[in-house]
């Protein structure tokens, strides 16, 4: 039950007026992989309309957590609800780390994005309009008539994000989406993602192996312990949006990042 106690900590941090309501509730989650216990009776509340980053030691099950929540891998035990609804009743978007293997190379970029709507039985004409509307809203300047393999990594991942966003998901999951990109492209994509978040207000859950990125993008940083994973800390990131590269040297940001790093190192040393 101590996990539940730490779930409460973000409310106190955030202040009473602005307290976000939980969107995703994870209760009693258990998962064992080939005899290794990854999660054992794990509880978590992910706030609605906020950006949550997941960070933790290698192999602690960061990606596994969002895969369990998004239903990509079955849970052994436990319940995941989205504002009281089941996964089947919820529209979710998911952006994979490996865009090369997640996009469909036999379709143009446009068709890739459109396909998400086709699966939701949106009529073809309407689907095209919705894709075009999204392109306009995000100010995307890519030639979408090209095939994914004709694009740069960043462009491909942007197409992946658009494919996830076009259905107007209630929750968007991102599994280390920028880790395969070079640093320049990563910085650009972070800001693109931040803009999308501000634009849409969608609940977002990002797994990152880069603490700076995790804090920079997030409203809350979920710090996990070594497995079986527990919540080590779940601090609020109070920096105003939009954040700029200058935010990275803001004393508050540096202090918060330091605190997260301390927690992280404490967890890594535990064994």
């Amino acid at each position: 039950m101590n996990a539940l106690a730490s779930v409460g900590s973000y409310r106190t941090l955030y202040g009473p007026d602005d307290a976000p309501t939980p969107h995703i509730t994870v209760r009693g989650l258990s998962k064992t992989f080939q005899g290794v216990v990854i999660y054992d009776n794990f509880n978590l509340d992910i706030p609605r309309g906020r950006f949550t980053s997941v960070f933790g030691p290698n192999g602690c099950g960061k990606s596994t957590l969002i895969n369990l929540i998004a239903g990509l891998i079955p849970v052994d035990k436990g319940e995941v609800l989205f504002g009281g609804k089941t996964l089947a009743q919820t529209r979710i978007g998911y952006v994979f780390q490996n865009y090369r293997e997640a996009l469909f190379p036999w379709m143009t970029a446009f068709a890739n994005v459109e396909y998400a709507l086709t699966l939701r039985k949106v009529p073809a004409k309407q689907a095209k309009e919705r894709v075009n509307a999204l392109v306009e809203r995000l100010g995307v300047k890519i030639d979408l008539t090209r095939y994914p393999y004709e694009m740069s990594g960043g462009q491909q991942q942007l197409v992946s994000i658009m494919r996830a966003l076009v259905v107007e998901p209630e929750v968007l999951f991102l599994d280390e989406p920028f880790s395969a990109l070079d640093y320049e492209m990563t910085l650009f994509m972070r800001d693109q993602l931040q803009r999308v978040f501000e634009e849409t207000g969608t609940t977002m859950v990002l797994v990152s192996h880069d603490l700076e990125e995790a804090v920079y993008l997030a409203d809350y940083v979920l710090l996990l312990s070594r497995r079986p994973a527990k919540i080590a800390d779940f601090p609020l990131v109070p920096m105003a949006r939009p954040r700029h590269p200058s935010t990275l040297s803001d004393p508050d940001f540096v202090e918060l990042k330091g605190r997260c790093l301390e927690t992280f190192q404490r967890e890594v040393r535990k064994s």
Binding site: L72, F96, A102, F104, R120, V167
Partner: peptide
Amino acid sequence: TRILAARVMG
């Protein structure tokens, strides 16, 4: 990954 991507889109 492609199969999962299609499944997660419904």
